[in-house]
Design a protein around this nucleic acid. Structure first.
Lengths: 186, 186
DNA sequence: AGACTAGTGTTCCACTTAGGAATAGACGAG
DNA sequence: CTCGTCTATTCCTAAGTGGAACACTAGTCT
């Protein structure tokens, strides 16, 4: 069967597996996009709206989600075929290594093209952006409290969120240090 | 003028600014791909071959690099227009925030779908992959020694490489900790 | 009441990027 | 003198982006 879907498909499909207390999750494309923006974006991507809808039709075509019309619009929920496709993917495919697209690092690399004050200003702005992102992730983390103990629904999401928070905290330290080093170079 | 190029164009263009001791750098598409694989991949992307050649023709069209045929094939070097386009881009465009695509984090998020031993195995494999990547970056860092002092050619590349090494070291700690936490959950 | 903003829900299109395969010459090893 | 590997390049397709367009709902301002 065609389980050869891009990672983003499985990522979106996976979001359907965090059932509310009352059964499996059903979401419209719009809602799925909100969920992805709130969570996936920190360590995967924030897919475009058009992408979300395209994924949903593809997943529906393959029977991994099932659409149904209700007063909210077209809502989708994961099927048992979808759940088992996810499990197979988790168990049997290679994760691959992470890809980081870091415009600040890229521009720091090319620091010899501008004067140090430009680079320093960029790094200081980045510290602020970092704080804003961290804030957003703190909110996500807080929203998981209450169901984040070892066998509860949000155990794994909370592990990932903690990882992200650590990541932001450490990046802050590194940038502080870089600012110090570049300042001294002067 | 059309300075509205994607970041990857500027990233590749930027690689031409690290002149060897004897003047500006001239590279074939193939060589440029090697350089990108060795350096850019750690904090931007490893563009596909096809992408590299497409970029080079576009940059040449706009006069930012100039092609010339020699015995190696078609080689390109940066023009003064290219250099100033880069500088303008560095000074005047918004960097934007970083995007991380981390398959391990994504799969950890969905940890409730498989048993803990699968997740643990994945994390342990990731530690090894991390060490391999770190090793590759260590080599890059070593290759910069000798020209990495405050005003030398590889000052900025070495700052970025140090950042990357810190990043890998810290991720290692986080993964170790996650393994410990998941092990205890059992 | 009427106008106006903001949020929800969805589709379409054009464009860019990414990945892989295919091709081809050159070069050294067996 | 053939095989594999490195260099160099092109082509095709899939994946992903961004913006425009459209429609419907609900609340706010005047």
């Amino acid at each position: 069967m065609g389980q050869d879907l891009p990672v983003t498909s499985f990522a979106l499909l996976g979001l359907f597996t965090f059932g509310d207390d009352d059964g499996p999750r059903s979401l419209t494309g719009y809602e799925l996009k909100q969920v992805a923006d709130a969570t996936l974006r920190f360590y995967w991507v924030s897919p475009a709206m058009s992408q979300v809808y395209k994924e949903l039709s593809r997943l529906a075509e393959r029977g991994l989600v099932s659409p149904s019309d209700d007063e909210r619009g077209t809502t989708y929920s994961i099927t048992s075929a979808g759940r088992s496709a996810l499990e197979t993917w988790m168990r049997e495919s290679e994760p691959g290594f992470s890809v980081l697209k870091h415009p600040i690092a890229l521009r720091l690399l090319l620091g010899h093209l501008v004067d140090p004050s430009t680079t320093l200003a960029m790094l200081r702005n980045h510290l602020e952006a970092l704080d804003r992102e961290r804030e957003a992730l703190v909110e996500v983390r807080e929203s998981l409290r209450g169901a984040d103990a070892p066998r509860q629904t949000f155990r794994h999401p909370s592990l990932v969120a903690d990882w992200g928070l650590e990541y932001f905290a450490h990046e802050r330290l590194i940038i502080d240090d870089l600012i110090r080093r570049i300042d001294q170079d002067e």
